[in-house]
Every structure is written in C-alpha cells, then in structure tokens.
C-alpha cells in the first residue's frame, strides 16, 4: 500500500502549509478563534469577514478567495460535504438542492516557506443535479471562473463512479485549467463499498487527480463532544481535509502564476517517487484524507 501511495503522491502534503495540528498550537488557536463562536464555527454573512475578529496584535492574514464548483450525481453527498466542511449540521436525510446554493467558509493557515499567515475563503458552489438538467444557466454559472472543480462519487453507488469518467472527459476539454479534485463520500460505509481500491488507483493514474475520502457522519461520541462545545473537536475532525484542500488550491495557484516550478505539465501531476507521503506516518485507517 505504501508503495502505491508514494508513487501517486502528487505533491507532498505539508510542504507548503503547516498540517500537523497547527490549529492546536497557541499561535494557531489565536487565528482559529476568529472563525469560531461558542465552540462552533461562526457563520459569516455576505457583509462580514473574520478579519475584523483577528486580534490586532497578530499579523493580519491575507485573504485568499477561491471558488469551488461541485459536480456529481444527485444524492451523492455534495450538500452534506459542504455542510460538514463549513462546520454546520449535516442533514440526516437527503434534501434535493433546488438551485444554486453557495456557502462560504474561512480557514486560516500558515505558509511554511514564508511563515506568513493566510485566511483561505472557500466558496462552494453547489447545485442540485435535477435542476441543472432542467435549466441551462445553472451549470455554466457554477463553472464560471471556478478555481477548482470537486467531482463527487459515493462509495456505495457504483453508477456515481462510472459517471465520473464521462464528466472528466467533458470537463478536460475546457480551456481554463481549474484544479480537479475527486471526493468519495460515504466512506464510513466502506464495507458496503462498490468500488475497489484498485479501481480508484487506476482512475487516479489515468486522470492524475487527488482523491479524498470523506465520511460526513459523526460517531455518537463525537456528536456529544460537539454539543458539549469542545471547540477543537469539530475543527479536529475536518482539519485534515481542509488543510489538504487549501494546500492543493494554493499550490495550483502558485503553479499557474509560475511561482512553483513543476517538471512538465501545469497540472499537479508530478510524481516524485523518492518522496514519501507525509500522511503515510499517520494511521491511515483514522485519516479521512489519505490517498490511495
């Protein structure tokens, strides 16, 4: 498994952004305090921003805005993933999204090379699958100027994975070069998985995209911890995924603007075999954001 993984690490995670529980360090805590309120994630309206809440004695972080477009079959877990990553309650039953719904979440991070702090502002553009088919304007509006496209499949729905291939061939013909990420949902039901790890590897090999595995459910104990207002529990829970996502976005940006040199293509597909994956020293069963 480790061999496979090292072969397909696109970029060593943690090279550019501090992963290792930065949010638990005293410095990280100060920054994370600006996106929390009573131990829960603070919700920001269109007119608000966490910058005013960063204590004045700290270095004011630069806001990095990203638009992320979500693509995937109906019921695959797009809206639930957004709710999870934004620190909101994940609905227990499937709710069909009636149009475009965009959600903003902020995530502070520290850049390793410069030591500078940045505040990532991720705007997720989520649109219901049924409504996209009925109205033509929805999908273009989501794709317009999106820096990243997140493709969703569900581990317990084989057809959602099959759909990915067609969607990939469609999107890659576009001229703009957004970051592509594949997200596999319902990983908690791994024993019912209809997709083998070999297939995932092959897919990754073919399209050169990172695949994140998510479970949008909480164990009862974790729910209790959240309700008890333990400020770190929820952040702890999503930190691996969020850090991975923002690091990929940042690297993609840097590559596009030529600040980071990659050997050949503009995509994040340099496979440096000698480097081991930073996530490999963690327990891969516990980690939601490991790579195949």
């Amino acid at each position: 498994m480790d061999d496979d993984r090292s072969k397909w690490c696109f970029h060593t995670l943690g090279t550019y952004i501090n992963h290792d529980d930065w949010h638990k360090t005293p410095e990280g805590k100060d920054y994370f305090a600006s996106i929390l309120r009573h131990g829960k994630r603070r919700v920001f309206g269109c007119l608000e921003s966490p910058l005013t809440l960063v204590p004045s004695h700290l270095e004011q972080p630069k806001i990095m805005k990203y638009k992320l477009c979500l693509v995937g079959k109906t019921g695959v877990g797009k809206s639930s993933t957004v709710a999870k990553l934004c620190g909101q309650r994940v609905p227990t039953t499937h709710v069909e999204t009636p149009g475009i719904i965009t959600s903003v979440t902020y995530w502070p991070a520290k850049l390793k090379h410069s030591g500078k702090h940045v505040m990532f502002r991720l705007q997720f553009w989520d649109a219901g699958h049924a409504v996209q088919r009925k109205f033509d304007h929805i999908h273009p509006a989501c794709r317009e100027k999106a820096q990243a496209v997140l493709y969703f499949f569900s581990f317990i729905d084989r057809s959602s994975f099959e759909d990915l291939r067609t969607q990939f061939s469609k999107s890659l013909s576009n001229e703009d070069t957004p970051l592509l990420v594949v997200i596999g949902t319902k990983y908690d039901q791994y024993n019912r998985s209809e997709i083998t790890s070999r297939e995932l590897l092959d897919f990754q090999k073919q399209w050169q995209v990172p695949i994140l595995k998510l479970k949008n459910v909480l164990k009862p104990t974790e729910t209790n911890a959240l309700l008890a207002g333990d400020s770190c529990a929820e952040i702890d829970d999503v930190a691996p995924v969020m850090n991975t996502l923002v690091e990929y976005l940042w690297i993609h940006d840097q590559v596009l603007s030529g600040n980071i040199e990659l050997s050949s293509s503009p995509k994040l597909n340099t496979s440096r075999e000698e480097e081991t994956h930073s996530a490999s020293d963690r327990d891969s069963d516990e980690d939601e954001a490991t790579y195949v």
């Binding site: 149009g99 475009i100 719904i101 965009t102 903003v104 409504v131 009925k134 109205f135």
Partner: peptide
C-alpha cells in the same frame, strides 16, 4: 435555506 449561504433558485 442553510444559514450564511447565497442562492440562485428558479
């Protein structure tokens, strides 16, 4: 609608 969101719904 989920809190904090913006939406465009037919």
């Amino acid at each position: 609608l989920p809190i904090g969101t913006s939406s465009d719904v037919p």
